[in-house]
Write a protein that binds this DNA or RNA. Sequence first.
DNA 1: CAACTTAGTATTATATTTATACTATCTGTC
DNA 2: GACAGATAGTATAAATATAATACTAAGTTG
Lengths: 241, 241
Amino acid sequence: MRNNSTDTKKKGSTQTKTSVTAEKKKNAVASSGITVSAELLIFSIDEDKLQLLMIEREEKPYAGLLALPSVEVGIKENLDDAALRGITEVTGLDDVYYEQLYTFGDKNRDPKKRNISVSYMALVPIEKLAFRPGERVAGVWLVDVDDLLEGDDELAYDHREMIEYARWYLADRTESTTIAFHLVDDMFTLPDLQRVYEIILGRSLYKANFRKKVAGLIEETEYLTTGDAHRPSRLYVLAEE
Amino acid sequence: MRNNSTDTKKKGSTQTKTSVTAEKKKNAVASSGITVSAELLIFSIDEDKLQLLMIEREEKPYAGLLALPSVEVGIKENLDDAALRGITEVTGLDDVYYEQLYTFGDKNRDPKKRNISVSYMALVPIEKLAFRPGERVAGVWLVDVDDLLEGDDELAYDHREMIEYARWYLADRTESTTIAFHLVDDMFTLPDLQRVYEIILGRSLYKANFRKKVAGLIEETEYLTTGDAHRPSRLYVLAEE
DNA sequence: CAACTTAGTATTATATTTATACTATCTGTC
DNA sequence: GACAGATAGTATAAATATAATACTAAGTTG
């Protein structure tokens, strides 16, 4: 599998916020070349729902609509670094799991300029995120993705298509890889992990079978949950290798 | 699954060969922006080997080395259309199965300019290809991919990495989709199809099990092979839907 | 301490995958 | 023209994985 490991370190996060506004005004009709951007799909799980981080646009085009956060790739910046810079900008985190998904390059995908956009998916445990579902923080929302996709509200650009693809991809990979582990904290209970799987896959799983499946991937710790009105649950960590 | 269907029609193939040479000379040091190209991995199967179409470079950088064919994406051209234009240019075919793979965007991947490259994979039955393994036609070679990857000959740009990814992807998808059907002719025998699977997966399969697996995907025709010194083999087509 | 609730395990039933052994039908040769 | 050699194609058993159910365990709350 091709994926960017968690330990990718931040590189471009010292720079100030890129001036998207100024950039837009310079090329009102058609710029001299193609611009490349990274569009970010930052997922988390909270309130038993798969949540996606989105921006409420303040300017045209698509003012007032929800859009994915994005960054323009710098002329001397690696594509992967640009994506991580964007993730860091919007979440404040720099050790996040992320991987490239798909590149969208229809000539009219941006009404104002010729832009090709590479979508990236990031997975963040809710414990590390400063945002909460339904709360607006500096124009940023955490939205229930499946709700969003079921509804027919217009989204900016081709972002609905991007989200649909990422949503499918996340479920598909969850079936065959350990990608979903990035949505729980470093130490987690099996009931919690199972809930994450169920939310992503959209169906309930048998407890006994789920445990058999992940048994070889995890290592138990000495810790147990406390305070719940039922039998405590053991905490596990992802096994090395 | 996201993939471009076979029936994508050609659009940009009337234009003349893009002047790659002239383009290169214009920006000897650093161009004003990022250029975007589509890099093409055109696979076929012949002589019981997975073959890849490659170009022998005549100019710097990497003169004399093997490289993937590529096209620069036009300012008013859809990304997918650019890829198909390139496939048509080099094969003469316009109804080819192809899909986007992965985007390579390291800032130094091209020593002469800032370029981001989107890799595309195309699968062509050898019957439709004008090339034969080991033969050079207008600077184009069909090379045994697994041989190439095992050896340590230098390839142009980051093309070794691109090929490694595509090689992995093809095998991975062959396990779970019908993608490999695009490497046989419209009408095919099951022994032939099985051979294609074995070459891609790199292991032998049990005849009876292979047949059970594809049984639901194919429709038998009335035709049989003739002339072989053994029992004739029935010809099948891919079932609709 | 009984009722409730969720954690965790043991075991069976079913389906899928893996593997082997067989029969079928052509060509070429003596 | 029968039989040897070759590959096509099928039937069936063995092993493994997946799906499903039923149970026991260990906390809190009233």
